[in-house]
């Protein structure tokens, strides 16, 4: 049985107060539009930039995420902020024809890149939904696995998004959050800070002709909750279990929540 997409929910719902956009404080209602601007700008060169900036490590981080998912044939998987479709491609191989994978993103340009990538790889069974992670248009208890890779830090109300992910997972379903995090190593931190604020934006300017977006990337990583804080947020959202694994010295962490 396929997943039912509920009525259309506005992608941009008004909210109160202020939030951060990188190191800047902005009106909460404005953040989504600003993030959209970043991803509209980088969508075409997103994969290339990921390879360059992470020295290819993002592929290993994503492969570990897939391996940790325990997804199997027949499962229903939602990949949120799935962008160019790296995770959706691998999930679709795991669930087979009896399963279902939905690739979703709030940004139409990124979703378009993902669709193009999947078609180029001969993958036609994946569904595409443009959605806001804070308002997931699916019935409760639907998915075996929900993933979000390098997307949560761009969500305006992360707690609301996590509650929604919990709602749509089946009991026993698994949430995977792959995201930049904090390293404990002082030496690595110094190198990483230098690289993030001095090298990454310059490379963004050279390759993608967009230095500002990669300045935002570096800043948004620093504003994202650390491993323990995010773990507490996952548990607060209702998950019975959550643990995380640091990858590449904590530059990236994979949080895994289980709905009980």
């Amino acid at each position: 049985m396929s997943v039912t997409i509920l009525e259309t929910i506005p992608l941009n719902k008004p909210m109160d107060n202020t939030t951060h956009f990188g190191f800047k404080d902005v009106a909460t209602d404005d953040k989504q539009g600003l993030v959209k601007g970043v991803f509209d700008s980088v969508a075409g060169k997103y994969d290339l930039m990921n390879d360059v900036l992470s020295f290819g490590a993002h592929r290993l981080w994503k492969r570990y995420t897939i391996a940790s998912s325990n997804v199997k044939a027949g499962d229903k998987v939602l990949d949120i902020a799935g962008g160019t479709g790296d995770l959706a491609i691998e999930f679709s191989k795991k669930v087979g024809e009896s399963g279902q994978v939905i690739l979703s993103d709030i940004n139409a340009a990124m979703l378009g890149e993902g669709r193009k990538n999947l078609i180029n790889q001969g993958i036609f069974g994946v569904d595409y939904v443009q959605l806001n992670a804070q308002y997931l248009p699916f019935e409760s208890n639907t998915f075996d696995c929900v993933s979000i890779a390098f997307g949560l830090r761009n969500v305006t109300d992360k707690d609301q998004a996590l509650r929604e992910m919990h709602r749509i997972l089946k009991p026993g379903g698994c949430l995977l959050i792959l995201e930049f995090s904090k390293t404990d190593s002082e030496l690595l931190k110094k190198f990483y800070d230098f690289y993030s604020f001095n090298v990454m934006p310059k490379l963004g300017g050279l390759i993608a002709d967009d230095e500002d977006s990669y300045q935002y990337l570096a800043e948004s990583i620093r504003k994202h909750p650390d491993q323990e804080t995010l773990k507490d947020m996952v548990l607060e959202a209702g998950f019975g279990f959550c643990e995380y694994h640091n990858l590449s010295g904590g530059i990236v962490a994979l949080h895994k929540g289980i709905k009980t």
Partner: peptide, 26 residues
């Protein structure tokens, strides 16, 4: 082949549980 790729990825990035993880929560 897929299992081998998964295993090699895991070996290369050597994930570990953070020391902080042992702290209790709720």
């Amino acid at each position: 082949l897929e299992a081998l790729k998964d295993g090699l990825s895991e070996l290369l990035i050597q994930p570990k549980v953070s020391k902080k993880y042992t702290n209790s929560h709720h």
